[in-house]
Nucleic acid binder design. Structure first.
Length: 582
RNA sequence: GCCAACCUAGCUCAGGGGUAGAGCAGCUCACUCGUAAUGAGCAGGUCGUCAGUUCGAAUCUGACGGUUGGCUCCA
């Protein structure tokens, strides 16, 4: 029977059972421990405990050791249907379990699973016996605080995370994957490659882009602007602060105030740093009487916004308090909306492919119970989103009722080189703001009508996107993005002039090249370029100088035949214009 | 915000009740050197901040600040 299970099902059981085994081990160490829940999760499992003291990393090793012993006992997992009454007796000294029992629906079959000496309230499923768990295929990873039932008003428990697999080899592979994630950590690479920094003294969650980071951002923005020009967008620049009137009208002071920076008072008025760009774009919309002939209006802005995020959630470039959205708002007639959405989706896909992301998943979120707007508009908008996804042949998951109160949306999650998913693109209808600001356009029939408004951010925020990009490439950016595209390395000081001249030629042609004229030896220069993940190292000496050539070494260690500076320039130019992904 | 761990030179880290160490980076000097580290020397820190204990604190205690892992996966 076990043969018929899928790998995911087998792993689910292994992880579930391993969590129980861990709970038994913890109870052996702390007989008074109160146990909460212990589900399997992606790649592993966790279990939450209320313990008499904080766990130390050494404790994990000890728990792991006990777990191995338990597992080796090949104890059977036995299921027993007990009913609520009996369950209450069994868990009379386990308050968290009692609470869970109370919350179970009446009609559900209440069961327990027993392994060795440990009985847990559990619906299963589990492995047949602990012989199915290889003692060297699991590992406890870390301890973290977690609120009982995720509620910060409830007790803080200690959560032990672990990972578990079918074989020791799979465990090793997973641990290697975790090591790779650590190696690619954008905070680490950001420091090593001198891309960006943050400064607690100057404010957490605020990003400082260093010259090399700024070069990459410039390349991203230039590309972004050009694509928007082609895509029929106009670009806007709007202020960073707005008076309370604006945020009262938009409703932000009502429903978003806790995420906004406190106001600055000036001339008896409160000014707020913007958490979103939309009200500003609407102000521009309102400067003229708009005709159906003007629509659609596609207005984009690289708009920097500020939001208050709780200090504990800040994380490098990925979760910050100040960031630049690649924002745009599309104002259109209901007739136009279908085409507009399709174009946005295609635009987004072009963007992701250009940056080297091919695996993309879509999520369609529909109307929640508490929401504003006409049902007919919601239906039409949702239909246009669905049609666009289908026209693009994209697989998508439906999140019924998962939309914002002001409109349905599509979110795109992109998968990076390590298979991790990041939510980036969002395309969102808004039936709220046009209403609040009283936006109109004059239609063919001379009647004033309400335009449709769509918010969309493709990359999301430049900071967050940069963080994902760094990790996706592990800092080895493709040539079109690399902050330094190549370093010219003279084999000896006698060739410094020639090296300088080569670098200058490439620089003047518009590329990011420099000569390394330091006192170091050639090997050291190559090493230094290599560790900064520079795509090309151009080695020049006697031969090259005489022939007007360069010897090209790539960061992959490959050596190309010597070529003229001109030929190299053409090669780089092609890679840059084609945005090749090597 | 809450729980835990951590905070020593620009970076990575060692040390630890008697007043601070390494490697790399930086600076200086020497070196005619072909595809991942030439050598020598110099300089660099009120050991996160503020209090307390002590003859003496970077080391022990507490508060504060920051960073990191979590706080969404539901028997």
């Amino acid at each position: 029977m076990a043969d018929t299970l899928t790998r995911d099902e087998r792993l689910y059981r292994i992880r579930h059972t391993t969590a129980h085994v861990m709970a038994e081990a913890v109870l052996q160490m702390f007989p008074d421990a109160k146990i909460a829940i212990g589900p399997p999760i992606d790649n592993g499992f966790y279990y939450d405990f209320d313990l008499p003291r904080s766990l130390k990393p050494e404790d994990l090793e000890q728990i792991e050791e006990k777990m191995r012993e338990i597992v080796k006992g090949k104890h059977a997992l036995t299921r027993e249907v007990v009913g609520k009454e009996k369950a209450r007796e069994i868990f009379h000294d386990q308050p968290f379990k009692l609470e869970l029992i109370d919350d179970l629906p009446e009609d559900v079959e209440v069961s327990t699973y027993t392994v060795d000496t440990f009985v847990d309230l559990c619906k299963g499923p589990h492995v047949e016996d602990t012989g199915a768990i290889h003692p060297k295929s699991f590992k406890l990873l870390n301890v973290a605080g977690a609120y009982w039932r995720g509620d910060e008003k409830r007790p803080m428990l200690q959560r032990i995370y672990g990972t578990a697999w079918e074989t020791p080899k799979e465990l090793r592979e997973h641990l290697n994957w975790l090591a790779e994630i650590e190696k690619r950590d954008h905070r680490k690479l950001g420091r090593e490659l001198d891309l960006f920094s943050t400064h607690e003294e100057a404010g957490s969650g605020l990003i400082y882009w260093h010259p090399k980071g700024a070069r990459i951002r410039t390349a991203i923005e230039d590309f972004w602007r050009e694509e928007h020009r082609r895509g029929g967008y106009e670009l806007l620049y709007t202020p960073h602060v707005g008076k309370s009137w604006l945020w009262e009208t938009s409703g932000h002071l009502g429903f978003y105030a806790e995420n906004m920076y406190s106001p600055m008072e000036l001339d008896n008025a409160d000014y707020y740093a913007k958490p979103m760009n939309c009200p500003f774009h609407i102000m521009i919309y309102q400067t003229a009487k708009r005709s159906y002939r003007d629509l659609p209006l596609r207005w984009g802005e690289l708009g920097t916004v500020y939001r208050y995020e709780r200090s504990g959630v800040l994380h490098g470039l990925l979760r910050v308090r100040g960031f630049t959205q690649d924002d745009a708002h599309i104002f259109c007639t209901p007739d136009q909306v279908e085409d507009e959405i399709l174009e946005v989706l295609q635009f987004s896909m072009r963007m992701w492919h250009a940056f080297g992301f091919d695996r993309i998943k879509a999520y369609l979120s529909t109307r929640p119970e508490k929401s504003v707007g006409d049902q007919a508009d919601w239906d039409r908008a949702t239909e246009s989103l669905r049609k666009a996804l289908e026209a693009e042949g994209m697989e998508y998951e439906l999140d019924e009722g998962g939309g914002a109160f002001y409109g349905p949306k599509i979110d795109l999650k992109v998968q990076d080189a390590l298979g991790r998913e990041w939510q980036m693109t969002t395309v969102q209808f808004d039936f709220n703001l046009p209403e609040r600001f009283g936006m109109t356009f004059v239609d063919k029939d001379g009647q004033e009508k309400r335009p449709y408004m769509v918010h969309r951010a493709l990359l999301g925020s430049l900071e967050r996107f940069f963080g994902v990009l760094i990790e996706h490439y592990g800092g080895a950016f493709p040539v079109w993005l690399a902050p330094v595209q190549g370093v010219v390395v003279p084999v000896a000081p006698a060739f410094n002039d020639y090296a300088d001249q080569v670098a200058k030629t490439l620089f003047d042609a518009g590329y990011r090249f420099e000569a390394d004229l330091s006192d170091n030896r050639m090997n050291a220069k190559i090493r230094s370029a290599q560790t900064s993940k520079v795509p090309y190292m151009l080695v020049v000496g006697e031969n090259e100088q005489t022939a007007g050539q360069v010897s090209v070494r790539t960061r992959t260690g490959e050596r190309l035949d010597p070529m003229s500076v001109d030929a190299f320039l053409k090669m780089v130019a092609k890679k840059v214009t084609d945005r090749e992904l090597i």
